[in-house]
């Protein structure tokens, strides 16, 4: 029975979410941070730093996903351990 093993790549989902978050926070940190915001976080521009950190995380996940893409294994050829039992029976 043909079985789709790789759903969609979770690593790309993580990369996109943190890419969006990172860019938004970086922009807010660079352009829309007033003195009150800075004072609240004890003088740190935390939006900027957290934004940059998230962009880095997103890039790392994207690189990982492209470097080692999910391979849907051909069950007939690669006799791996693990799945293979039918789901319906006991």
């Amino acid at each position: 029975m043909a079985h789709k093993a790789g759903l969609f790549d979770l690593r790309l989902v993580i990369a996109v979410l943190f890419g969006v978050y990172g860019v938004v926070l970086t922009v807010v940190g660079l352009g829309f941070t007033d003195d009150a915001d800075l004072a609240k976080a004890d003088g740190l521009n935390i939006n900027l730093w957290a934004g940059v950190g998230m962009v880095v995380l997103a890039v790392l996940f994207a690189l990982w996903a492209f470097a080692r893409p999910v391979v849907v294994p051909d069950a007939a050829r690669t006799g791996r351990e693990g799945p293979g039992r039918e789901g319906s029976g006991r």
Partner: peptide
């Protein structure tokens, strides 16, 4: 499960900056 993994990173992304700002403070 996929959402749990996503959630793990969001929680860390929320708490790590909080900890750093707190320590700075």
């Amino acid at each position: 499960i996929y959402n749990e993994v996503l959630q793990f990173f969001v929680i860390v992304a929320a708490l790590l900056p909080l900890t750093l700002v707190g320590l700075h403070k």
